[in-house]
């Protein structure tokens, strides 16, 4: 596993943890291997770093089978989707190749999960997202950072609806809240480590060593914007042992 590092990533997250998932095995096959990889990732995320983005690098992974993808990706996302998640981590996978897509996509669909993946340098939303949620993510990905009012005017919906859609992305852990009604895409959060404002597709921290220390968590609270009540965010805001989201 790569060394965890704390990086300057703007005001949205406290740290970025960069992990090469192929450190132990170049071929990620079998469930025990997947469990070992997941445990190592979770270990890196322990220690109360506040909100963090975990970048999982698949570029050195040869074979990825369905069983291992289920153990590494699905079980990791499921655990951090719960309200009792061990830490406030968001996940993005990079370096994924065409042959990784099938097993990852299959486990995302099986469990109704979403994941931001960077394939051939371009970020994409993987998993069974409904059309309007995907549209919201696409818009956020293009803009990098987005307020609900901006999104509302772009899509011709009222602000409450726009806010609801963006919050759903946060609840799915595929967008990061900046303030009550402002949101960032995960690629944008990573790109901003260089001090730039606009995200640039394909630009990600190449190595943990590139990242510099960062200060205290800006949001103060738990980092999750509260639904205003006039919408129906789905999945609902974290709530203990509630079932996993389903469409």
């Amino acid at each position: 596993m790569g060394d965890p590092a704390t990086g300057m990533t703007g005001k949205v997250v406290d740290s970025v943890v960069h992990t090469s998932v192929a450190t132990f095995y170049s071929n990620l096959v079998t469930r025990p291997t997947g469990r070992a990889v997941r445990s190592a990732i979770e270990e890196q995320l322990q220690g109360g770093r506040g909100r963090c983005v975990s970048v999982l690098d698949f570029s050195q992974v040869g074979v990825l089978d369905f069983s291992c993808a289920d153990e590494v990706i699905a079980k990791l996302l499921r655990r951090y989707l719960r309200s009792d998640r061990p830490s406030d981590a968001f996940f993005i996978v990079q370096g994924v190749l065409e042959h990784h897509r099938d097993p990852i996509d299959a486990v995302l669909r099986r469990h109704n999960l979403l994941l931001v993946a960077v394939e051939s340098g371009r970020p994409a939303l993987w998993g069974p997202a409904p059309g309007r949620l995907r549209a919201a993510w696409d818009c956020l990905d293009r803009m990098g950072r987005l307020g609900a009012s901006e999104f509302a005017s772009t899509y011709g919906v009222n602000q409450a609806t726009a806010s609801s859609w963006l919050r759903r992305l946060v609840n799915w852990r595929v967008a990061v809240p900046e303030s009550f009604d402002s949101f960032s895409s995960l690629p944008a959060v990573l790109s901003r480590r260089d001090g730039g404002e606009a995200p640039e597709a394909g630009r990600y921290p190449a190595a943990a060593e590139e990242m510099a220390p960062y200060g205290p968590e800006p949001s103060g609270g738990d980092g999750h914007p509260r639904p205003s009540g006039d919408t129906d965010p789905y999945p609902s805001a974290p709530g203990g042992s509630k079932p996993l989201p389903a469409y």
């Binding site: 071929n27 096959v29 079998t30 469930r31 040869g62 074979v63 990825l64 089978d65 369905f66 069983s67 190749l97 065409e98 042959h99 099938d102 097993p103």
Partner: peptide, 20 residues
């Protein structure tokens, strides 16, 4: 060329069927 990786996935899963 990527077929070898898909082929390996098939092999892996059918063999795991025995173990599991």
């Amino acid at each position: 060329p990527p077929a070898v990786l898909h082929f390996s996935v098939i092999l892996s899963e059918v063999c795991q069927n025995i173990v599991e």
